[in-house]
Design a protein around this nucleic acid. Structure first.
Length: 717
RNA sequence: GGGCGCUUAGCUCAGCGGUAGAGCGACUCGUUUACACCGAGUAGGUCGGGGGUUCGACACCCUCAGCGCCCACCA
């Protein structure tokens, strides 16, 4: 090669290393400008098969973490692959209003200005949240763009958009009309700080060292409790019906210390006779299990602690004290009365609010419940019949165990930020008669009393009530016909029940079909020490750090490389591997482009390797194999395997072996096909790798001489 | 209290019936025009312990141990 040619070669990809920073932004802009993220714009047949992926909704409060990077890399690989396969591909993005989480963030902001939400009131507060959302709510979507995600941003939905809200309200009314949604006064998990009920899935657990107080009610009755202050609200003592020790006591009465109330001794199967004394104090108002025992035995509820954690009037002299204070006083009093038999140290787990960490105080309140019986049955059937396949299969058990033992869902929350429930109260009717209607819009005239201006209930819905509708509520009316159902849902295991199960039965109930046919549960990324990555613990590693330093392709490579199925102990050296691989591809492309001459055309025509050298034949054969194998792996969600196989092929078979052979062949007249083979393998490799490392591959593709297609993004696989 | 997963080279992990592989790291050699973010090599493992099935096990079964996760209304 003479100097002139050498100079030409450098002009194609330049002489230096690949600089992702310089090109990623530009390439992403070109993709967006093309409009091809929108399936309606794809140059495919009208009746091309759709391929739809619903993005697990990130919270508006979110910012990109490793979990998102993994999750969305997988989705982007699937989506890009299917698009190159000629499918009408839609990846639907959106954000979740994340009720408690967002309210909490905005409250914290306000507190910095010494303002509480109660001071400014509900309406003003909600305005503040919308302001906050306008300013920060799309951060995560911007970050997903930097990752290279090819979602259809023109369809981005927020779970509180008016169109979405319409479906939420319709769902509520639908459930009510089906008779599945009911109002009840029940003891629920209550966070006194957030002043709202929480579903059991919103609880977290914390080990606590406490005491087990053994309290003597009478000579025959001694109970063990971790919460002596609730004794004031006892309305029964319960024993196991088969407990011979206490058989004779069943049906008799005993006096509650301090308050002097006479309460019955009842028999209930829920009591474990081997624990403590085998006798349990029953406080239906302040314990969820006790509430259920109370229901079974028609026990009254005596509320001694209010929704803010203070003792009520029913607590007598303890009124106004915080529950913890009252506990100390009550224990003192019991001791004085000689009723404290013993106190033993006791370690157990207490439930705490997942948002603020405060201990849960079970409290009775009026809530809305969704009966789960029929919905759970539908969700169960969908998976057992394989209409929805969960991968890996073992998670089907996690799913069905939960649904088989499910309790009715408390869907109301007492916070301000969220979908206000479509329930309207009559001002003239009393609580003991029917005093509300459930309807999509506020009635102009009260249908109950005929005169009053009805008032909407202040409760809002559990965030998951709305996100459960995402696969269809996220679509416009015409899209509902075109892009429902979807195909694969890719997510982490922690929201399998919280969200995936609920989407499945919601889809069946409202759309008549399961919302997707596959659920992929991938591993969780942890620190190298095996600890959970968490911002609050300071153990998180920010994927944006890698994107900024080495580019999105390298970040994606590192994540996917490690995501073999098990949980991942994040290994920094995978980033090194990605960087080297990027460099390898870059240089191989540089070599090929420099070798083939500028009159070459892509895609390479008439490659007949059967006429070539042994090396030609070998690499062509290996290329065919790797292409088929990667396609198969992607279709079976084996992304890491696919990437590793391609890596091995490209680095070792193509670069180490074929390129070296090609150097000799190029100089020889005996190997006329060398240029075609080089072109062909490079071109095909770019396609195969594109779903994994979209920027680098697109960039090189753009530099190929004389090619017709506009973007590798839509090149046919 | 149930259930699940993991334990393979220094590190992070593949493999899952026929006598061990990758990436990163280490070491040796290499100043050839794609790449030193490179090439050619080398070292390094009784595949957590014990038992069993088998002609043969890292792979299958049982059991023990350690680590991690999930579920549960044990007061």
């Amino acid at each position: 090669m003479n100097e002139n040619e050498s100079a030409k070669r450098q002009s194609v990809l330049g002489s230096g290393a690949y600089e992702p920073k310089d090109v990623e932004k530009e390439i992403y802009a070109a993709w967006e400008k093309s409009g091809y993220f929108n399936p309606d714009n794809l140059p495919v047949e009208k009746d091309a098969e759709p391929y739809v992926v619903y993005m697990p909704l990130p919270n508006v409060t979110g910012s990109l973490h490793m979990g998102h990077a993994l999750d969305n890399s997988f989705q982007d690989i699937s989506v890009r692959y299917q698009r190159m396969r000629g499918k009408k591909t839609l990846w639907l993005p959106g954000t979740d209003h994340a009720g408690i989480a967002t309210q909490y963030v905005v409250e914290k902001e306000l507190r910095k200005q010494n303002v509480s939400r109660f001071e400014i009131g509900r309406e003003k507060f909600i305005e503040k949240v919308w302001e906050w959302k306008a300013q920060y709510g799309n951060l995560i979507l911007e970050q997903l763009r930097r990752l290279g995600c090819s979602a259809d941003w023109s369809r981005t939905r927020f779970t509180m958009d008016p169109a979405y809200a319409k479906d939420v309200v319709a769902a509520f009314v639908h459930y009510y009309e089906r008779g599945w949604l009911y109002r009840g006064y029940r003891t629920v998990n209550w966070c006194a700080r957030c002043a709202t009920s929480l579903s059991e899935l919103e609880l977290e657990y914390k080990d606590e060292e406490t005491s087990l107080w053994h309290i003597k009610y009478s000579d025959a009755v001694t109970v063990a409790t971790t919460r002596p202050e609730t004794l004031l609200g006892d309305t029964a003592i319960a024993v196991n019906p088969h407990d011979e020790r206490y058989e004779k006591l069943i049906g008799t009465e005993v006096t509650v210390p301090i308050v002097g109330r006479e309460i019955p001794i009842v028999a209930d199967e829920a009591i474990d006779s081997t624990f403590g004394t085998g006798m349990v104090k029953v406080t239906p108002a302040h314990d969820v299990l006790d509430f259920e025992i109370g229901e079974r035995h028609k026990l009254p509820m005596v509320v001694v602690i209010d929704g803010r954690g203070r003792m009520t009037k029913e607590a007598g002299v303890y009124e106004g004290m915080k529950a913890a204070e009252a506990r100390v006083k009550i224990v003192e009093e019991l001791e004085k009365q000689g009723r404290l038999v013993k106190v033993e140290p006791y370690a157990h787990r207490v439930s705490v609010c997942y948002r603020c960490g405060q201990s849960i105080e079970p409290t009775p309140s009026a809530q809305w419940f969704l009966s789960m019986k029929e919905l759970a049955a539908k969700a169960l059937e969908a998976v057992s019949s394989k209409k929805v396949a969960i991968h890996p299969e073992r998670f089907e058990k996690t799913y069905s165990d939960w649904l088989s033992n499910i309790r009715d869902w408390t869907v109301s929350r007492q916070i301000w930020w969220g979908h206000q429930i479509p329930v309207y109260f009559c001002k003239n009717k009393k609580d003991d008669e029917k005093n509300f209607v459930v309807t999509k819009e506020k009635p102009a005239k009260c249908p109950l009393c005929g005169t009053c201006e009805m008032e909407q209930a202040t409760d809002v819905l559990d965030t998951w009530f709305s996100s459960a509708l995402w696969p269809f509520a996220g679509l416009s009316e015409s899209d509902k016909k075109k892009y429902y159902p979807g195909h694969t849902l890719i997510t982490a295991r922690d929201i399998l029940n919280l969200w995936v199960a609920r989407m499945i039965y919601s889809g069946i109930e409202f759309m008549g079909k399961v919302p997707f046919t596959n659920v992929l549960i991938h591993g969780t990324i942890m620190t190298k020490e095996g600890k959970r990555m968490s911002k609050s613990l300071g153990t998180g590693i920010d994927p944006l750090k890698y994107i900024e330093q080495y580019g999105a392709d390298v970040a994606r490579f590192a994540v996917v490389w490690q995501a073999t199925g098990q949980d991942i102990r994040w290994d920094e050296t995978a980033v090194v591997g990605g960087r080297k691989f990027t460099n390898k591809i870059w240089n191989a492309a540089k070599f090929v482009l420099g070798s083939i001459g500028e009159d070459a055309t892509f895609p390479a025509k008439n490659v007949d390797a059967s006429l070539g050298t042994d090396a030609d034949k070998k690499i062509m054969g290996e290329l065919q194999k790797i292409k088929a194998s990667v396609a198969n792996d992607i279709e079976h969600f084996e992304f890491a395997k696919a990437l590793r196989e391609f890596y091995d092929f490209f680095w070792h078979s193509f670069c180490d072996v074929y390129l070296e052979a090609a150097k000799g062949q190029l100089a020889s007249d005996a190997a006329p096909h060398t240029r075609e083979v080089l072109m062909h393998v490079l071109f095909e490799s770019l396609k195969v790798l594109h779903p994994f490392m979209p920027f680098l591959t697109e960039y090189i593709f753009q530099k190929l001489p004389k090619h017709k297609q506009s973007l590798l993004l839509i090149e046919q696989w």
